[in-house]
Amino acid sequence: MKETINWAVLAYDKWHLYIAKTKKGLCYVGSPGQSYEDLEKWIQKRFPQSILLESEEALHPYLTELYEYFEGIRRTFSLPVDVRGTAFQVAIWEALNQIPYGKTTSYSEIARMIQRPTAVRAVGTAIGANPVLITVPCHRVIGKNGAITGYRGGLEMKEFLLQLETQNGD
């Protein structure tokens, strides 16, 4: 039996982000400018025995938490995620969840956190493969020199998220 993956569009300000969930949790938060076809290709690659079904109702709790985050009301996400990757990627994504709201860290610090201090480039690649933007806070990783570096959601969105957290942080 094929797995059903529900999807919906999160529309906030100028951004329209496709989001998707499996029965286990949120599996995808897309980037601004991505199309339905991009979502479809991503799902087919990672969940080949699945069908996509649009259901804003199924994603309502996730949409609510994301809207609350964008409004500065929510600092952490409580709903489950279903992120699938290599053991290295999963370790990186778990490390990202340790970065407090409103704080930033460097790629080299993440590498140290997972006890792989020389794997800074691999850390950057794993961060770039994070399938659930915002909820797994890869936007909180910046260059060692403090520069705002690449982000799958684009630098404009990364700057927005960092500024949002700075304004609503402690």
Results as ranks from 00 to 15, higher is better:
Gln167Thr: 07
Asp170Trp: 07
Trp15Gln: 11
Gln49Glu: 13
Leu17Trp: 12
Ile5Cys: 00
Leu53His: 14
Thr22Lys: 07
Asn145Gln: 04
Thr4Pro: 07
His60Val: 00
Ile142Thr: 13
Gly85Trp: 07
Phe47Asn: 07
Ala95Ser: 10
Val120Trp: 03
Leu162Cys: 00
Ile114Arg: 03
Gly128Cys: 07
Ala95Leu: 01
Ser78Trp: 02
Asn130Ser: 12
Tyr69Asn: 08
Trp42Glu: 11
Ala20Thr: 14
Ala20Val: 14
Gly154Met: 08
Thr135Trp: 07
Lys144Val: 14
Gly150Ile: 02
Ser35Phe: 02
Arg140Met: 06
Gly102Val: 04
Ala119Ser: 14
Thr125Trp: 03
Leu10Pro: 06
Val9Ser: 09
Ser35Tyr: 01
Ala111Leu: 04
Glu94Tyr: 01
Val120Gly: 12
Pro131Trp: 13
Asn145Met: 00
Pro100Cys: 01
Arg84Val: 07
Leu79Asp: 01
Tyr28Gly: 08
Tyr67Ser: 02
Ile19Gly: 10
Pro32Met: 09
Phe160Lys: 04
Tyr69Gly: 04
Glu71Gln: 15
Lys144Ala: 15
Arg46Met: 09
Gln34Cys: 05
Arg152Ser: 14
Glu68Trp: 06
Thr76Glu: 02
Asn145His: 07
Leu59Gly: 04
Ile92Arg: 04
Tyr18Asn: 14
Leu79Arg: 03
Glu94Trp: 02
Pro48Gln: 10
Arg75Val: 11
